[in-house]
Amino acid sequence: ASASASAIQARSSSYNGDFGGSGGRRFSHSGNQLDGPITALRIRVNRYIVGLQVRYGKVWSAHVGGTGGNLEEVFLHPGESVIQVSGKYKKYLRKLVFVTDKGRYLSFGTDIGTSFSAVPLHPNTVLRFISGRAGSLIDAIGLHWDVYPSDCSSC
């Protein structure tokens, strides 16, 4: 059974990134996806994406980045998932736009810099977790896609 599960995993997961600069320290929420699907976002914004925190199921990830700027918090609707992420960056992340399968556009930051747009490689997959580089700001972001968790009783 584990061999076929690995084969399924290999065909459904994909990655886009890193979008942004090379500064900061690496971070990854790979372990957080075990808490469930992405259910909310906390983004700290000034002229840059200063910091971010993601809620997986009912558990918030550790905050990454700085603590300045304005805190914006958005909750996804039950069963709603992120299916596209776009944004802009220069040396640091300047803008993030999360598009959901319910047609919502959750936009943070300023419209300055080089554009990027990320979508999953495989059909019926959603944003499962993020990674990247951060210091006092979010330097870069990576986006990891996979199937929506099948056992979501805790979500």
Results as ranks from 00 to 15, higher is better:
Gln53Ile: 06
Pro120Arg: 02
Asn16Gly: 11
Ser154Thr: 10
Gly68Lys: 13
Tyr92Leu: 09
Leu93Lys: 01
Lys58Ile: 09
Ser61Thr: 03
Arg44Cys: 12
Pro37Val: 03
Tyr105Arg: 09
Phe129Asp: 03
Gln33His: 09
Glu73Lys: 10
Ala7Leu: 08
Thr125Pro: 02
Val97Ala: 05
Tyr15Arg: 04
Gly87Glu: 00
Phe98Asp: 04
Ser2Ile: 10
Ser22Gly: 12
Phe75Ala: 14
Gly87Lys: 01
Asp18Leu: 15
Glu80Asn: 04
Arg128Trp: 02
Thr114Tyr: 08
Gly135Tyr: 07
Phe19Asn: 01
Asp139Gln: 05
Ser2His: 13
Val64Leu: 13
Ile43Thr: 01
Ser154His: 11
Tyr148His: 05
Leu96Gly: 00
Asn32Ser: 14
Leu41Gln: 00
Ser107His: 05
Lys102Met: 13
Gly65Arg: 04
Gln53Leu: 03
Asn70Arg: 13
Asp151Val: 01
Ser136Trp: 09
Arg94Gly: 09
Thr110Ala: 11
Leu76Asp: 00
Gly68Glu: 04
Gly20Asn: 09
Gly66Gln: 04
Lys90Thr: 15
Tyr92Glu: 07
Val82Lys: 07
Ala118Arg: 07
Gly24His: 12
Ser28Cys: 12
Lys58Trp: 06
Leu121Gly: 11
Thr114Leu: 14
Lys90Asn: 13
Pro149Leu: 00
Gly36Ala: 00
Trp60Asp: 05
Thr100Ala: 03
Phe27Met: 05
Tyr89Trp: 13
Ala118His: 13
Gly103Cys: 01
Arg25Glu: 15
Ile141Tyr: 03
Gly87Asn: 02
Ser13Cys: 14
Lys88Ser: 01
Ser61Ala: 00
Pro37Met: 02
Gly103Gln: 00
His122Pro: 12
Thr39Ser: 15
Asn70Trp: 03
Ala140Tyr: 14
Val59Gly: 01
Ile8Cys: 12
Tyr148Ala: 07
Val119Leu: 09
Val54Thr: 03
Phe98Ala: 08
Ser13Ala: 06
Leu127Arg: 06
Thr110Gly: 12
Ala5Gly: 07
Lys91Asp: 13
Ser2Ala: 11
Ile112Ser: 13
Asp111Arg: 15
Arg11Cys: 11
Asp146Glu: 05
Gly142Val: 06
Asp35Ala: 12
Val74Tyr: 02
Ala1Thr: 14
Val85Trp: 14
Leu41Tyr: 02
Pro123Arg: 09
Lys88Arg: 14
Lys102Gln: 10
Ala62Gly: 08
Tyr56Phe: 15
Arg25Tyr: 10
Gly24Asp: 08
Asp35Ile: 04
Ser154Lys: 09
Ser2Trp: 10
Leu96Cys: 01
Ala7Gln: 09
Gly69Ile: 03
Lys91Thr: 10
Pro37Ser: 11
Trp60Leu: 15
Thr110Pro: 03
Gly36Cys: 01
Ser153Trp: 14
Val74Trp: 02
Gly31Met: 08
Lys90Gln: 11
Arg55Ala: 08
Ile38His: 01
Asp146Asn: 13
Tyr48Phe: 15
His122Cys: 14
Phe27Leu: 11
Phe108Arg: 00
His63Val: 10
Asn70Gln: 15
Val50Ala: 02
Ile83Cys: 14
Gly65Glu: 06
Arg26Ser: 12
Asn124Ile: 02
Leu52Ser: 04
Gln53Ala: 01
Leu137Phe: 15
Cys155His: 07
Thr100Pro: 06
Ser115Met: 07
Pro78Val: 05
Gly57Thr: 07
Gly103Asp: 01
Thr39Glu: 06
Tyr15Thr: 05
Asp18Asn: 08
Ala1Asp: 12
Lys88Cys: 10
